[in-house]
Each structure stands twice: as C-alpha cells, then as structure tokens.
Simulated assay, not measured.
Amino acid sequence: MTRTSNRVLDLWHRMAAKPGGKWLFTRLICLRAPYFATIRPTFDTLEPGRASVRMGKRRAVHNHIGTVHAIAMCNMAELAGGVMTDVTVPSTHRWIPKGMTVEYLAKAETDLLATASAGDVPDAPEGQDYPVQVDVTDTRGTTVFRAVITMWVTPKRERA
C-alpha cells in the first residue's frame, strides 16, 4: 500500500530535532487526545511501522505496591500503537482500535519505554484487522508488559 503525506509525521519531522521538540510534539498529540496526558509521555521515535514513547515512574502512575499501574502501561501502549498506526496507514484509509490483549510479564519498577511495531498495512476493500505489537521495557531492558492492539483499517468513504 502506498503511503502519502501525513500531517502528524510531517509535524514530527519538523519538531523532533529541535530543542524540546519531542516534548512539544507529544503535548500537541495529548491536546488532541487528552487522556494520554495523564501518564506524561514523550515520544522518542516515530516513523511508519515503528514508534516509541517514554514514561517516567512517578507516584501518579503507581499502583498499591508502588510499581507502574497496569492501566498506565495500557495507556502508553495505545498511544504508541495509535500514533504509529496513524503515520503508517495511507491517507486513503482510516483506522480505529478494535481490541487489545495484554501480558504483564514483570513488575514495572523504573521509567518505561513502549515500542510499537507492525507489518504491512492491509489493503482489503471491506476492511481488515491490523495487529500492532507494543513491548514495554524498563531501564534495565527487561520487557515488563506486552500488548497486541488490533486496529481495524478500512478505506475512507467518498464524501457526497
């Protein structure tokens, strides 16, 4: 499937190399989808087929045992996976999360990095599932959480 220009990816390319650009880019994404701001994320990388997002371990995202709460990691995974999908899917198509399966593999006791990746975008005329894998690692490189987010990708409808 051929990729055409994407406003989000163009914005990333303009901002990422500038001082504070990644932080500001992430704030703009969070203005569009405010719930993501609750984890105070920062995009680290963004390109078609791959994105990574950082989140600091702080009290506001803790659970009752002082580690990063499972739902904060789900939020992080959906942010990384959703924005990665947005810059990967051609402008002729649209997407929406359809479901997410998660695995909690270890206690999340440090700052975290979520890395989203996916294969080729489906080109089904009636729509198709597009699985996005997100691995969340701690500062020691241990995978503490894994998610597969099923995105539903369909061609955009022609406007009358």
Rank of each mutant, 00 (worst) to 15 (best):
M1F: 12
T2G: 10
S5Y: 07
R7Y: 03
R7G: 10
L9Q: 06
L11P: 02
M15F: 01
A16I: 08
A16L: 07
A17R: 14
A17H: 14
P19Y: 10
W23L: 15
W23H: 14
A33I: 15
F36T: 02
A37P: 04
F43C: 12
F43G: 09
E47Q: 15
G56I: 10
K57I: 09
K57A: 15
V61G: 06
H62A: 12
N63Y: 08
I65C: 06
G66F: 05
T67Y: 02
H69F: 12
C74F: 02
N75I: 00
M76H: 04
A77F: 00
G81H: 00
V83S: 05
V83H: 01
M84Y: 00
T88A: 05
V89H: 08
P90K: 00
P90A: 01
W95D: 08
M100L: 10
V102Q: 03
E103G: 12
A106F: 07
A106P: 13
A106R: 11
K107V: 13
A108D: 11
D111N: 15
D111L: 11
L113I: 15
G119D: 14
G119I: 03
P122E: 12
P131I: 04
V132D: 02
D135R: 05
T137P: 04
T139R: 15
G141F: 04
R146F: 07
A147N: 07
P155E: 09
R157P: 01
